[in-house]
Amino acid sequence: MSNPQKAKDLIEVKSPDELSVQSRNAMGTVFTIYLYARDGGQASASLEAAFEEIERLEEALSDYRATSELSRINRLAARQAVTTDPEVFALLQRSLAYSRRSAGAFDVTVGPLMRAWGFFRGKGRYPTDRELRRARESVGSEKVDLDPAARTVRFAAPGVELDLGAIGKGYAVDRAVKVLREAGVKAALVDAGSSTLYAMNAPPGKSGWTVHVPMPGDRSQTVSTVTLRNESLSTSGSYEKFFQLDGHRYCHVMDPRNGVPVQGVLQATLIAPDSTTTDALSNAMFVMGPEAGRKLLATVPGARGLWILGEPGAQRLVQWQWPDCAGDGNERTLAAKREKGKGQKTG
């Protein structure tokens, strides 16, 4: 989680603009909004409106809340075509488009596989062949039929379920930024759980928002420092969540294509113009790895990517158009800079 106090210490505050910071729990994580407003009144009303928008989207997109629109779709769509509103429908269309573009590496139907591997209970276990086979029968974006004319969702197989956890937070960040822009806020940074953030404009007197990408496993160390202005950065990583079995280290990010957790990738970070894209495609980058991932990023305007590969203690870095690296496809052994607690962090 970002540390508002540290951020405040490091960002120059010029009167009459003041930095306002507020954090709230939403979508299973902590959203933090940093903003420069005209005055305290504009700041508090804008923060409230932005968090209200995030809460609205949690109510629509949560797969934990029985009352959400997504839960209603999940309950009904295997039996009948379910009409949904244009916003949810468009996000589902976008999710399936990312699945196609990533050849299945990004997949909002991956839930049954996660459950088979025991990830929803916070642990991990090797599923039986039967469990794995049954789970895979319910996984795959091709099993979600969207009818744009009728605006309906229908599942082509029983057991299919939608989980927008790898795209919904990014979408909520984008929508919150839209609210802040409409409210006339001068500059803001909206951060979802330190994994997806958007830097709107720049703090007074600065060229952008300074963001540190931390080292996997040691957040006090910085892998890279970037300055963002009207861009999003998202990091997929699973260093903290993993389990070991028979000498293999399994992380909690699933490769939907083969039904096995990703191995050999510790962290993937993406910079792109919007947070819905970075949230979804940083996840795809993690699953695809740098070789295939770079081909995907080449199709995303303004994309810059950074992978950290290997095992703990033997990490190496691969980048694509990354701001503080020379050349493309540059691979090097990681020598992280020790820069504790500077600016906004992500990871």
Partner: peptide, 11 residues
Amino acid sequence: NNSWRRPVPNP
């Protein structure tokens, strides 16, 4: 715990 006030672009 809020002002019940909505942001106005041009106050």
